[in-house]
Design a protein around this nucleic acid. Sequence first.
RNA 1: UGGGCCGUCGCCAAGCGGUAAGGCACCAGGUUUUGAUCCUGGCAUUCGUUGGUUCGAUUCCAGCCGGCCCAGCCA
Length: 559
Amino acid sequence: MSDSVSVGADTTNFIRDAISADIASGKTQKLITRFPPEPNGYLHIGHAKSICLNFGVARDFNGYCNLRFDDTNPEKENVEYVNAIREDVEWLGFSWHSNPFASDYFDQLYTYALQLIDQGDAYVDSQSADEIRQNRGTLTEPGVAGPYRDRPVEENRRLFEEMKAGKYDDGEHVLRAKIDLNSGNINLRDPVIYRIRHATHHNTGDTWCIYPLYDFTHGLSDAIEGVTHSLCTLEFEDHRPLYDWILEKVNPPFHPRQIEFSRLQLEYSMTSKRKLNQLVENGQVEGWDDPRMPTLSGMRRRGFTPESIVAFCNMIGITKKDSMIEMGVLENALRDDLNTRAERRMAVIRPLKLVIENYPDDQEEWVTGKNHPQNPDYGTREIPFSKVIYIERDDFMEEAPRKFFRLSPGREVRLRFAYYITCKEVIKDNEGNIESLVCTYDPESRGGNTADGRKVKGTIHWVSAAHAVKATINLYDRLFTVTNPGAATDFDSVINPESNSVIDDAMLEPAIEHCGNSIAYQFERLGYFISDTGSTEERPVFNRTMSLRDTWAKIDQSR
RNA sequence: UGGGCCGUCGCCAAGCGGUAAGGCACCAGGUUUUGAUCCUGGCAUUCGUUGGUUCGAUUCCAGCCGGCCCAGCCA
């Protein structure tokens, strides 16, 4: 492994403790884990938690982690998802030891099934799906045996071989483990372990028409790979007795240990591939990589860094408690990372024209701006300045409250890196809308300071009109209006209609690259931005990854 | 009324019988040519609850209360 991601080595949790104990006792020689996605959708932030756990723990204990595609359901899986998943795992910064498919083990699995049949531990059931459900009982009533439960071994074997040979239609027979119809754990009431599906599989094509189910496949795949610790989410806790039963009966050389942890729930998002797929299918988002999606591809396009996602995963911990993580935690992880790495630039989202009346008409000069306020390694750049500039509409108020220390009539503010200006006049159209501002500047304040050292509290950003580059900017808000949209019955009622506002006439300073090259910028005072995948030289498009923390907005709101 | 699991600050989360870490959020100051960043300080006499064991319990035991998961030929 050569992971570039760093994790606090001091992080601890009950799974790391369990692994430490297994290593200390000698039960585990070399730690082997696996991340086992089904290629039936794109990875989301919830998967990131599992990826960071599995790969992180493997790295920290000098073991390794496999990326295994759990592809036992040919009707839902395809290569588009396989490729997207690989890309996302690599993007996060992790390297797998091997990258098998569960379907690579179909031959072995079939042999294991035969073994179970021969041992009398599995039988072919010819009841319909409905009948099987009926006879399984309920949460409070035990199941009852169907008419095929005691079929002779030879007949089971013949039927199963004929199933494999394609002699039967979908649903005619299934192979069931023979365990305990009275168990309080419904998973143990003779679970189906093989079914007939005449479907083309993305990896094995038409080689098979019978497919093993999750419970039969997973533990055996783990065993085949020598996985020592099979880490999964809480809903599989009830499956652990079955996981262990299968391994005991088949008795492969190795018996992995399954440990469950709680899945990630993030406010205002959904971590369910099925539901995310619905959003895509319904056209409620642009696609899996829509920047509002909690998918890794969406977050990447939005401008999240892999480091910030890994940091987030390390921040939230691993437990068995159902929890709901506040958005603020993710936002903090993102801002924290972007703050240190993003170069600063100036851009105006809602331009307000401003004319400096005492500045020479045809003059143009260049002022120097720091690319990062704390880190000189990022260097400086030259920014064009001229008589007509754009400032942010929000930075001007005609009737400003005491605490507002930006521009208003008669007040002086600093144009970042440039000059002090004082507002002299407000130009309005016939309807009274503010059209532009007329100001004067103090030639002695070049660079943003004066010899008299007078106090200018406000500093605002600006862009020279003659040099500005017009751009489209996507501003984002949360996709949903409720903290737990996954609980909603229909998405229409909880989806935020204003989750994406498009600004068509934003103005950028010239020194900004905008051709989809994934450079994270901070547009000063506005937030972090990244050029969108569709951005071109002719039509620059930027996505706002995240706004800056805005104390003024809070003060303004409480007024 | 079946089986499994969980309950420590607003949200996460350490703690493993010796007297409540940390992060996020929040509040109050300081620095600041981003109302950003950064820095300082504040923020659980209490660990769902009631009993029990113990010199001593968030940690052990029992009851109760609250929450989550399971009846796919999905994973």
